[in-house]
Every structure is written in C-alpha cells, then in structure tokens.
Design a protein around this nucleic acid. Structure first.
Length: 566
RNA sequence: GGACCCGUAGCCUAGCCUGGAUAGGGCACCGGCCUUCUAAGCCGGGGGUCGGGGGUUCAAAUCCCCUCGGGUCCGCCA
C-alpha cells in the first residue's frame, strides 16, 4: 500500500468514527514543503456539522491519527484547520523508484478495461490541405488516442471523409475546367483548383446549376450502388486530396486507423433507412421539405432532413454514420470545432430518438489569424504543411547555432508544433502568431526535451564512470529531490485525470512541471561529482533514470519523440 | 432576438467541473550563476482591480444572478 492511500484510509476511519459516515477525501499538495508534503482541508467542511471550529477539529483528528502510526508518515501537524502530513521520503522514494524501474515505459499505464472507444478526429473536408485549425483537431485527437490507450481503453480512430458535400462537387467541376497543378503537393493542388472554381462561379453564377447537377448525379449513382464516370471523378478528387492530407498527418506523427467515407452510408442504404425510421417517430413535419422536430430535447430549431430536391444532407448522413459507429463501440468520442455545437446537439437528439447511444463530443475553439478567421475557399489560411516546414527550418537553425546534429531537428520541430497546440485547453480561442508558434527559446517542448536529453547524458556519463543506480535513499533528501519525487509519483494521477476527463493539456502541462522540477534538481543536486557520497550518487542516478522514463512516456503520449542529445 | 465559449500583469497561459493556506508558470524587462553531470538551463527582482457589479459562504479566480468586451452558432453549407 502506498503512503497516500494509507493517509486517506486512516483519515476515513477517524472521520467515520467522528461523524458516522464516509466522506470523500482529497489529498492535496501543500503550497510549500515547510507545511508538509500533503494536506487535507476536510476540517473546514466538518466544522458546521460538528459545531466546532476547524482548528480544534484538526487538532483532535491529528491526535487520533498520530496514535495510528500510519505507515510511511513521519509527522502530522494541525495548522489553522489544515491537517498537514510529512512523509517518510526514504521509504517513499525507494518504493516509487522501484516501481518505475520495474514497469519502465509502462509506468502509469492503466489496466486493460475491455472497453472499446471509437475516436473520430480531424475529418477535414478533402477540398484542400489541413490548415492550422484542422491541426488543432488532429493533435488533440491523436494525443487523446494515445492517452486513452495507455489508460487501458481499446481505441480505434476514424477520419470521417466528407466526400458528398457541395465543396467536393466544386472540386470535381473545377478539375474539369482547370485541371490540377501536378507540380504541387496533391492537397494543395486541390485547394488551388477549389479557389479557382469558387472565383469562377462568382463570375458565372449561371453555372451553379451544374454543381447541383453533379451532386444529384453522384448521389443517384451511390443510391444505386453503381460505379460510373461520376463516382470515379469524385473518388479521384477525394483520394487525390486525401493522399496529400495523409502525408501531412504522417509528418506530424498522426495516424488514423480507418477512413470512413460519408458516401458509404448512401451506398449501403443506411441514410434512407435513417430517414424512414425518423419518420416513424412521428417527429417529422412537412414544410418546404421534411423537418425533424427536436423541441422535446430543448432544441428550438428544427432539423432539415433532406433538400427540397430530395438529395440528402450532411447532418442526415452524419446520423447514419454515428448510428453505425456507436453500434460498434462502447464509447464514441468526436473531436469537433466549436461551430458544430448546435448540429452536434441535433445529431445527439436524433440518435436518442432512434434509441441509440450518443457520442461524447470534445469541442475546441478556433485558431484564427491576427487579420481574422481562416477560409479555404478564399485561400486565406496557413496550412499545417507551411507551419511544419517553418518549424523544421527553425529547428535546424537552432541545431546549427548550438552545434548539434541536424538529424534531431525533426523531433524538435515536431515537438514544438504538437506541444504548442496540445498544451492549451481546447475551449480557449487561439490567435495564430508565427513568432509564438516558432519561438524555441521560450519554454515549451524543447524545455522538456532538453531535460530528457540531460537525463540521457548523465546516464551515459554514469556508465562511463561505472556508477550504478540504486535506490538507497538513506540520507536526508533535499527539497529539490522531494519535489521531483512527488512529481514523478503524480504521473499516475495525471494519466487518470487526463484520460477520464479527455484533457490532453493536463498531461502537457504536467510534463513541463516535471521538467522544471528536474532542472531544479539538476542545478542544485550534484549527481556524479566526485565529492558526492556513493549512496547519494546511486540514489540520485536512480532519480535521473526515473525522470527519463516518465518524460519519455509522457512525451510519447503527446506524439513527441525525445532525442538523446540536443 | 436566442444559445454556447472565452476574458487571469505589456503579451501568452494554468487553476474554475470538485470553493480553502501568500492566484502557479512562461515571454518580454532588470540583476546574478558555466575551473567536475549539456546555460535550449538555474537563482533573484519589479509587474495582478483574476473584465465590471451584486449575491451565496466562516472562505469566491472557482458557485449563482446581472452587466461589458471578443468569438461562434441559429431549417434545405459542411
């Protein structure tokens, strides 16, 4: 049993005797080590119930706790109503470090839960390259997949390909009129054509009919499950764009398990089936077209189920997709831009009507440019490729400046891009600024990678000197060592919190804190210096090794590599 | 008009769900630290009406109400 559980159990026991019921106890870190290592503020909450002041309650509880001799606890103090615990670091450190040693990169891993999650993310329209807004989606999604898997879920990632929208018909028509620039990266070539056709249609609005015609023909063919000239044109265009998008994702260390085409739900008849079933609920009203009344779910706006010309709409097809997806997993998670909030609510309501479970949705706010929001149609966006290329270029420059081999530049560039997005909580709107996205001197991923590289270099040096790591810890630890040990221990809780709350930034911010704790330890506690006592040397080396392991695991969960030198 | 998100030093950000000890970081600015483990680092300093106003509470950045500013969404786009 670990110290923290011992403390909680003892507290529960004492408090149960006091008030006759179980009370949830949260052990917190103290603001500083003079106040102990962990504390609880439970006495404030008990004050009213026991009709005593918190200070007295704390003192009484402390007396009782002391007589219990909690294993691993050195001292307990009552301070102004708080109960502060001082732990026996020698024991704590030894246990922790052994645990990390035994488990290695599995330290912090959760038990297999036997729960399948389908996580949909990115799902950008194949009418151009991913821009930095899509990138936020992709990075949150990919990190989340890694974290959820590590926590013990069985996770499958989906990229939902919107191949049936107006924007795809535009691309197809555009390719016919203008072709594609074969010199360009495929998704960028598609975007170029897409911009051209949009401009062209503005000048020739009479050709709008051709687009609608294309969409009708495509849907007709799909409904008959045919493969003809039209479907081939769409497939070509979609795949052309997807090839480029996949390349970008690969560069960013992002991989989807499955690409699901929207059209497949028209082909297999599920869209028709969904509309039919929704009709049967009696919630469909006929206006200019068929509308779904969702007022039972607190949604005032009705949901349009099809166009007046009979063709299906994105939202209807999305219901079919979700129905299918959710039947194949225990939990469905979608990562979506905040602009989808209302439609996501509508889809959920429709799914409930059909007796299906509903997805969890993680929303993120937009990344905008200082001059305003991005637009693929107007060609006003910063592509993920552009950002990544710049990051790579900048990383190389930094490497050269510092005399480090350029081959780690990929790791640094990738880390900078992924980390800068992963660390911000998703509900925060972001304004993209080049100098912020690319500034490696500032704290961010390089700081964490640097701490890791330091660990590596110390371990190497130890090997050269023939110093073995060993969890002795038979001396009074410095405050830097204590802080570091507590941080290393916290990793398990961070994984749990990050996974259960689906919050990637929690892990990202933790890693920065861990790196900071390590750097302080490094600066203040000599490790391999000759004057250092052997037991101290061995123990500290163990801490270095443990830190390296946790940093490595943590960064890997963010999809970031850690170079051994930098 | 209705709904949702954001507002924390010059700039960026954590904490808000689950209320508690002097609101954590970082950038920028000022001053220190490389004659034994990597200075992409460490230590110190200045800088805060937690947008504003009410309320609940022993205690509010955190919960509730109102309000201001920014963003987003609101039937045949995706």
């Amino acid at each position: 049993m670990d110290v923290k559980s011992n403390i909680i159990n003892a507290l529960k026991e004492v408090i149960y005797k006091e008030v006759g019921k179980d009370i949830e106890i949260k052990l917190e870190k103290t603001p500083n080590l003079e106040l102990g290592d962990y504390s609880v503020n439970i006495c404030f909450r008990l004050a009213k119930e026991l009709k005593k002041n918190p200070k007295t309650i704390a003192e009484e509880i402390v007396e009782k706790l002391k007589s219990m001799n909690i294993e691993g606890v050195k001292e307990i103090k009552a301070v102004n109503g708080y109960i502060n615990f001082y732990i026996d670091y020698n024991k704590f450190a030894k246990n922790l470090v052994k645990e990390i040693d035994n488990k290695g990169n599995d330290y912090g891993r959760g038990n297999k839960k036997g729960i399948k999650i389908i996580l949909e993310h990115t799902s950008a329209n194949p009418n151009g390259p991913l821009h930095i807004g899509h990138l936020r989606n992709a990075i949150i999604g990919d990190c989340l997949k890694r974290i959820l898997e590590f926590y013990g879920y069985d996770v499958e990632t989906h990229y939902y390909v919107n191949d049936m929208g107006r924007q795809m018909a535009l691309v197809v028509y555009g390719i016919e009129l203008f072709g594609l620039d074969k010199e360009k990266k495929k998704d960028h070539a598609i975007a170029e054509t897409y911009v051209k056709i949009n401009k062209y249609l503005e000048e020739h609005p009479e050709e709008e009919e051709k687009i609608l015609e294309l969409m009708r023909e495509y849907e007709d063919a799909l409904e008959k499950n045919e493969n003809n000239e039209i479907t081939k044109k769409f497939e070509f265009a979609v795949n052309y764009a997807l090839d480029g998008i996949k390349e970008t994702l690969k560069n960013l260390n992002i991989k989807h398990d499955i690409f699901v085409w929207e059209s497949s739900y028209v082909r297999n008849g599920m869209v028709k089936e969904v509309i039919k079933k929704l009709m049967e609920t009696g919630k469909v009203v006929k206006e200019e077209t068929y509308m779904l009344d969702l007022s039972d779910f607190g949604i005032e706006k009705k949901m349009v189920l099809a166009r007046a010309n009979g063709t299906s709409l994105y939202s209807t097809r999305d219901i079919a997709y979700h129905l299918d997806k959710l039947s194949k997993c225990d939990i469905g998670i979608d990562v979506l831009g905040a602009d989808h909030k209302l439609t996501a609510e509508m889809v959920k309501a429709a799914l409930k009507l059909l007796g299906s479970k509903v997805p969890e949705v993680i929303f993120y706010e937009f990344i905008s440019l200082p001059e305003g929001s991005m637009s693929t149609r107007r060609g006003r966006f910063i592509s993920a490729d552009e950002l990544f290329d710049e990051a790579l270029k900048r990383a190389k420059e930094e490497c050269n400046k510092r005399g480090v081999e350029e081959n780690i530049a990929y790791d640094i560039g990738l880390g900078a891009v992924r980390y800068n997005i992963a660390r911000i909580s998703p509900e925060k709107p972001m304004v993209f600024k080049w100098e912020e996205a690319l500034d490696f001197e500032k704290v961010g991923c390089p700081f964490i990678q640097y701490a890791h590289a330091r660990c590596c270099s110390i371990l190497k040096e130890a090997e050269n000197k023939g110093v073995k790591d060993e969890a002795v810890f038979n001396y009074e630890l410095t405050k830097e060592e204590k802080e570091l040990i507590k941080m290393l221990d916290e990793f398990k809780e961070i994984i749990k919190e990050s996974a259960e709350n689906r919050k990637v930034h929690v892990l990202a911010n933790y890693l920065l804190e861990l790196a900071k704790a390590f750097n302080r330890f490094y600066a203040n506690c000599p490790i391999l210096m000759t004057k250092v006592d052997d037991n101290v040397k061995k123990s500290r080396l163990k801490l270095v090794k443990s830190t390296k392991t946790v940093l490595e695991t943590g960064l890997r969960l963010l999809g970031i590599n850690c170079p051994g030198r930098m």
